[in-house]
């Protein structure tokens, strides 16, 4: 039984699959998360160590303020290793300084659960406020993207609201 931020992760599933229980985390993001936290591809939730669970919880609590990914630049042929006396912290800072600026970290802007739901609601509210067709269809509880409505359209009738849940 693993609870992370109020979400129960299924014990017997692979961690990369169990992470998709979070609202706002799909297979792709779950894969990234596992890579970030060094969770093995075939690791099940019940086999996660306490440290990994804590790391996961602390990362998901606020992805934007999580410590940056440590970059490991490859050494050039003429590289001389630093002296043993140099403290590790200095080495890490140097590595960060020398590393090339990469693409922005996609996990920084990760939004899950309540935050993600709020984002969806805000987007719908925006459409409604400016009076666009999309907003109107949400208010009517009908499909937004031109689907047929003579029959079916059940999902839209169930979900499409201005104040959407789920």
């Amino acid at each position: 039984m693993v609870h992370v931020l109020g979400v129960l992760l299924p014990d017997l599933q692979y961690a990369r699959h169990a992470l998709t229980t979070f609202y706002g985390v799909g297979n792709r993001t779950a894969h990234r998360l596992c890579a970030r936290l060094q969770i093995h591809d075939r690791q099940k939730v019940r086999d996660l160590t306490a440290t990994q669970i804590t790391e996961l919880a602390s990362f998901l609590a606020s992805p934007s303020t999580a410590p940056p990914l440590r970059r490991m630049p490859l050494a050039l042929p003429g590289y001389k290793p630093p002296l043993v006396s140099v403290p590790t912290e200095t080495l890490r800072n140097h590595a960060l300084r020398d590393s090339l600026p990469g693409r922005p970290d996609p996990l920084k802007s990760l939004k899950i659960e309540a935050e993600a739901r709020r984002m969806v609601k805000e987007n719908i509210a925006h459409q409604r406020m400016i009076g666009s067709y999309v907003g109107k269809r949400h208010a009517m509880g009908l499909p937004v993207r031109g689907q047929n409505t003579q029959s079916n359209a059940k999902t839209a009738k169930k979900l499409n609201r201005v104040n959407r849940f789920g």
Binding site: M129, I130, Y133
Partner: peptide
């Protein structure tokens, strides 16, 4: 046209 409508199409507002 208001500030919030930027990026949308004109047709979205003419039902």
């Amino acid at each position: 046209v208001t500030q919030d409508m930027i990026g949308h199409k004109l047709g979205e507002f003419s039902h």
